[in-house]
Simulated assay, not measured.
Amino acid sequence: MEFDLQWLLLGLPVAFALGWLASRFDLRQWKREQKESPKAYYQGLNLLLNEQHDKAIDAFIEAVQHDPDTSELHFALGNLFRRRGEYERAVRVHEHLLKRADLPASERERAQHALAQDFMKAGLFDRAQQAFEALEGTVFDTEARLALLALHERSREWRAAAEVAARLERSGSGSFATRIAHHWCELAAEADARQQRSEADEALQRAREAAPQSPRPLIMAGQRERARGEHRAALLHWGTLMAAHPAAFNLVAADYADSAKALGEAEAALERLEALYRRQPSSDLLAAIGRLDGDAARQRQRTLAHLQHNGSLSAAQALLASGDDEAKAVRDAVARAAKPLQRYRCAACAFEAQNYFWQCPGCLGWDTYPPLRQEDL
């Protein structure tokens, strides 16, 4: 069968025309997609700036559909989901990015960090820990370790927290000595609760080695000695505390007075407390002095002077307590008014508590409570 060249001559122009039409169609579609993608992206940004998060998410989803390979759109969308509390959707977005084989190493690390933040916000601490640990040696190494430190503290894994804090300090990320001392103090308290005295002694020694100038190890050491009846040793620890941290001494002023009385050294202790009170008056010191001085008239004069110079409602309450029954209504009113001012307040988040905390229950910050009650600040 002979091949007819006429068909070839006719077919070539037809094939060329079809190819040209197809290329024109693809070019127009590509231009349209390229035009629509940034338009949706900028529309999403505008909506986001106007606090219209629902519409912004819809716009970003539309932009991602037009250009599914653009990682920036995925990051923007994932961050929006996280801010809105839609953590499951944020996780899906960032996990999708991690599954892409063409994602550069820097973008992969960024996606891993975003995924770890998703888990952290969602309260999935085990998965968050694994995700942050996977960032070791990356540009997010320091941020990941700081997050791990917060995770260990939240979970009360104090030994692990101390190790992470020590690594951060060795890497030059700042000083974590006081924070490490708190970790060892927490371990000492837990060991004491289990009646493992030697383990508690070792933990407390580690705390003092980590931060020799920190007041908490001295306070705890004195309290442990006093609980065992070793009042002399307790006074030695608290004497060091009084010289190095006079403000923090308020936390144990009453215990100091009781231990001094137990040793028959009330007079000498009274002189020391009065000297400290003259430099830094406080209601806690005033109460401790009252424990040591058996003369009610002198203590009443001290309380009146404190009330006149410091305007303390606690002093007014103490003064009224020594009066007759006719003053009962006034005493009760002053007691109610004084109670809020007898609390400690976190300087970071303003969380108030009747008891002193080394770590704020509200913001989880360390040493954010001044060692003075509100009325003495």
Rank of each mutant, 00 (worst) to 15 (best):
D255C: 00
R92L: 15
L286R: 04
S282V: 03
A162G: 09
A266L: 01
W20T: 09
A191I: 02
L270W: 02
A56T: 07
S198H: 09
E375W: 10
L168K: 01
M220S: 08
V14W: 11
A105Y: 02
A268T: 08
A288L: 04
E230M: 03
R291N: 07
L5W: 13
E133L: 14
L235S: 11
R89V: 05
P246C: 03
L276H: 10
Y42E: 08
A166M: 05
E2F: 11
D255F: 01
G323S: 10
A287M: 02
S259C: 12
Q205R: 13
S322A: 13
L251V: 07
W184C: 07
A244F: 02
L124Y: 12
A22T: 09
Q301F: 01
F60P: 02
P281R: 04
L168D: 10
R145Q: 15
D67M: 07
R291F: 12
L218R: 15
L77E: 00
A210N: 08
A193F: 08
A200E: 15
M120A: 11
A105G: 00
P246W: 10
L73Q: 11
A134D: 07
W184F: 15
F351P: 00
L45N: 10
R208K: 13
C363N: 08
A338I: 07
A254H: 10
A76K: 15
D118N: 06
E136T: 13
Q29A: 14
P370N: 04
Q317H: 14
L98R: 07
A160W: 11
A350M: 06
A63E: 07
H309F: 04
Q205E: 15
I219H: 04
Q196H: 12
A318R: 15
G239P: 00
Q129G: 12
W30D: 09
A297R: 15
A193M: 11
R179S: 14
R272Q: 15
L135T: 06
V93Y: 00
E95L: 09
G264H: 06
A288P: 05
R224M: 09
R272M: 09
L47R: 04
L307V: 09
A335L: 02
D255M: 03
D284F: 09
E209F: 07
L276T: 03
A243N: 10
L372V: 07
